[in-house]
Design a protein around this nucleic acid. Sequence first.
RNA 1: GUGGGUGUGGCGAAGUGGUUAACGCACCGGAUUGUGGCUCCGGCAUUCGUGGGUUCAAGUCCCAUCACCCACCCCA
Length: 423
Amino acid sequence: MLTTRPRGTNDILPGEVEKWQYIEEIARQVSGQFGYHEIRTPLFEHTELFLRGVGETTDIVEKEMYSFEDRGKRNITLRPEGTASTVRAFLENKLYANPQPTKLFYIGPMFRYDRPQAGRYRQFHQFGIEVFGSHHPSVDAEVIGLACEYLERLGLNQLKVHINTVGCPKCRPQYREALIKYFQDKKDILCKTCLGRLEKNPLRILDCKNTQCQELSLNAPTIQNSTCSECQIHFQQVQNYLDSVGIEYIVNPKLVRGLDYYTHTAFEILVQGIGAQSAICGGGRYNGLIEQCGGKPTPGIGFAMGMERLLLTLELQGISLIANYNNPEIYIATVGEETEQLAFRLAMQLRKKGISVEKDYLDKSLKAQMKTADRLNVKYTLIIGEEEFEKNQVTIRNMATSQQNKIPISDIISYIERSLRGK
RNA sequence: GUGGGUGUGGCGAAGUGGUUAACGCACCGGAUUGUGGCUCCGGCAUUCGUGGGUUCAAGUCCCAUCACCCACCCCA
């Protein structure tokens, strides 16, 4: 137990961590260019925030939250997603007082007590964006466009963008009724979970993976026939914007997102081959959420992207992220004790000059030190033995050409700078 | 929460119930005087996820437990 990480968590080790740095860097780059600013909120919040923000009937809240009582008897939950926290921070810090809309992004760990499997972990990471304060359809298109641009910049392809509208508080109740009416007399065919959904959230039945439920859904009333004209116009405008910049998408009337707060536009970006979890990005508009969290009525929209799934997809598509291993440029090999101390001082001086240096820490033989230098793939190895030490010299060996010569110790730093940087 | 699969050294991986648990890679050391990449030699699991049980004898059989993987569910 002592040497085992908790279930569903991962160590990101050297060699892997560089990939994370890269995809995070691109995320920041793209977000910046789109005019989004980073926000960092706590990893835990008051439990009520998620009950209210995510929705009490969602699976996340019903069975996936990491909740505990702190020493002050407060109910605390590790954040299962980023939107609720971002909304809270927006309200608490009165960001609505700034010119609107507010465009934010975040990158960080989320926590859900799920059963781990391919592409699903208990601690996972999301890159997400949120826009508060505009109901303009171009914002919907921009949010989708940002996601696409990011994925494209990473070199991903064969991604499918699914979009839908899930209606608004005006027309969704009617659609709900229509669905309930449709499924009511087919109760005996529906799966157990859908039976429950019929009461709580009939839209989710459309999303069921059960083949019988899917067949039933085929002839179910579609939301397009039930939405109000306002919703239809909005949805059409979003599509026009997407068309105008050549973003391809599929209108999927059965796309229903699992979080209660969505209104109008909902979308997902799907890939195949990374296991059963095929959504690498999901999002939509949530015009009622901010009000529900205690703010003035304010429209909002955003998405969240799963970084682990992103990396799985990159690997699957054979996209190698150039890992910038910080290989040292110089290795200092020594023979003897006094020389080791000299090596230490030299290393520190060179590093001050911005040169990466490695040395021996295990009193290895010269042969073994050379082997290490070779494996580190350094450009030059400095060799300091008794002979050099007495003459105040250092042997510098070019590892590629095997040529070496002796340099006075007083010149060695400038000599290395010249050799390495050409200055 | 439900179901299936797996569990041998740092990694990969052999191992019909019977003596010192193959092999490959990695790692460490060496092949005369202070020097890497090739080659050669040597070292590296009191132990087979853990705990019980069966047996004269278990990594090999049984039970339990834990962990990991995959799927359902749900989602990123």
